[in-house]
Design a protein around this nucleic acid. Structure first.
Length: 433
RNA sequence: GGCGGGGUGCCGGAGUGGUUAAUCGGAGCAGACUGUAAAUCUGCCGCCUUAAGUGGCUACGUAGGUUCGAAUCCUACCCCCGCCA
């Protein structure tokens, strides 16, 4: 099925790849010339094994790589085992802890496992920086650094900001762009891919290649995806990310939680829904002729299907409708075995427990303990708060006050719900054994 | 080497002797509302304990000290940052 470069290269297709979800191409004309040359291009993509999880923000670029692969081009994935020790200073800088070779290896493996869920392994070369930096000596470092000036490095926006703002820039951070640039030389990259924030580093690579007598690489930048909070770029440290490893239900739900204003961006950057349809959706949204929720559900569906499969997407959708929209209980609830006959032993015997018929009536004290025990809350203080807020239900009945205390009958098979999406089914451990 | 600034709860960031578990913003959680886990509104938001806003513990870089009482004053130490050399 795969086509070689040049063979039936569809210009429409190519132009769509070069347009949709692209932030900037440097230099565009050269890029087009390269593409039409028919030669398989060497596409560089690097990552630091200081991170493990790939989230949708990364996927934007990875999908591009995939598209190029389908045109017959080759991806060179660079494992930044040296740059990981420096830490990319993009954004706010943090000195990162040095990783042991063991950790680096583990992180890299985890990362690649996820990476190849999007990118075609067959058309990817994995190269480790240590292949070339392992041999670097001081003389090489000096030679490399001699090619650039501090003023050049300070052109980079975040360096400049920090410099002017009187905040620290470590020497090693200054080295980061140089190392990344050297990677391009080492592998003879034709094109480097990255998020918008990688522009500076990629350009340094372009420059260094020129200095070293190579053809300067093209730089292909994709937009930064805004995270679920709707304002900041998606990133792990901000906690506004959707990881591609997440279970279908979580993934679906997280997509549903993005602000409506992000729907079209996500469609454009993360799905294959054709441009024509996107236009229709935009029109519908702007004329208010569609409930954004409907489109968002489709988006969530598409995304779950992409990282799991259609079936999971359908299930996740049903779960969402059931649990969130209708406030019902999910089909599958984790069970927690409890010795009902000896509950007071488990929860602390000094507390009273009423017996109503054949069921046990738990009053507030043991109830908070129980919620902690079941892992539904972290502390009893939290449990107490949630009870007061009316967030706890047992078998569909809100736990309400009973004689100045919160209480609820609990028996084998009872379903305890906290908030909207925390559920546990209590089963009688005595019966099971 | 010299001078100066700073270390506060998940994050940002107030607070310079008591009414401060510690303003405020963000994040998070809950409730209401809603065609969405969007938006909006309200509330909660250290831990344990109690019938209870009851009692207690832990907390403002670390270790001591002054004081009836300290995140706030003193001493030493650790760490971070800038400027000048």
């Amino acid at each position: 099925m795969s086509r070689g470069p040049g063979s039936g290269l569809n210009t429409m297709e190519t132009s769509s790849i070069l347009k949709r979800g692209v932030s900037e191409i440097i230099v565009e004309e050269e890029m087009e010339r390269l593409l039409s040359s028919g030669r398989p291009l060497r596409l560089k993509q690097g990552f630091d094994p200081s991170l493990r999880d790939i989230h949708l923000g990364h996927v934007v670029g990875l999908r591009k790589l995939r598209q190029f692969q389908e045109l017959g081009h080759q991806v060179i994935l660079i494992v930044g085992d040296w740059t990981a020790q420096i830490g990319d200073p993009s954004g706010e800088s943090q000195t990162r802890p040095m990783l042991s070779p063991q950790e680096v290896r583990e992180n890299a493996e985890t990362y690649m496992r996820q990476f190849f869920r999007v990118v075609d392994r067959e058309r990817t070369d994995v190269r480790w920086q240590s292949e070339w930096f392992g041999k670097f000596d001081l003389a090489s470092v000096i030679e490399l650094t001699s090619k650039f000036t501090v003023a050049q490095m300070l052109q980079r926006e975040d360096f400049q900001k920090r410099y002017k703002g009187g905040r620290a820039i470590s020497l090693t951070e200054l080295l980061y762009p140089l190392l990344q640039a050297y990677d391009s030389v080492a592998i003879g990259a034709d094109v480097e891919f990255g998020g918008n924030d990688q522009k500076f580093n990629c350009l340094v690579g372009r420059e260094l290649q020129g200095i070293m007598g190579q053809a300067p690489q093209q730089v292909f930048l994709v937009p930064l995806l805004v995270g679920t909070d709707g304002s900041m770029k998606m990133s792990k440290s901000l906690g506004n990310y959707i990881a591609i490893d997440e279970p279908p239900n979580d993934m679906y739900g997280k997509v549903m939680s993005i602000p409506d204003g992000l729907i079209m961006d996500y469609f454009e950057l993360l799905t294959d829904v054709p441009d024509g349809e996107l236009e229709e959706m935009r029109a519908e949204l702007s004329s208010d002729s569609v409930n954004p929720m409907v489109l968002k559900k489709r988006l969530a569906h598409e995304i779950v299907a992409q990282f799991h499969d259609r079936e999971s997407a359908v299930e996740a959708e049903q779960t969402f409708e059931r649990v969130v929209q209708r406030g019902e209980v999910p089909e599958e609830i984790p069970e927690f075995p409890l010795p009902l006959s000896n509950l007071s032993g488990v929860l602390g015997s000094k507390h009273t427990m009423l017996s109503v018929g054949k069921t046990l009536y738990l009053t507030e004290l043991p109830l908070t303990r129980l919620l902690v025990l079941l892992g539904l809350v972290n502390t009893r203080a939290e449990a107490r708060r949630l009870l007061a807020q009316g967030a706890v239900e047992v078998d569909g009945n809100k736990v309400s006050k009973l004689n100045e205390e919160y209480g609820a009958p609990i028996y084998d098979g009872s379903i305890i719900k906290v908030g909207k999406r925390r559920f546990v089914k209590v089963v009688d451990a005595d019966k099971r054994t």
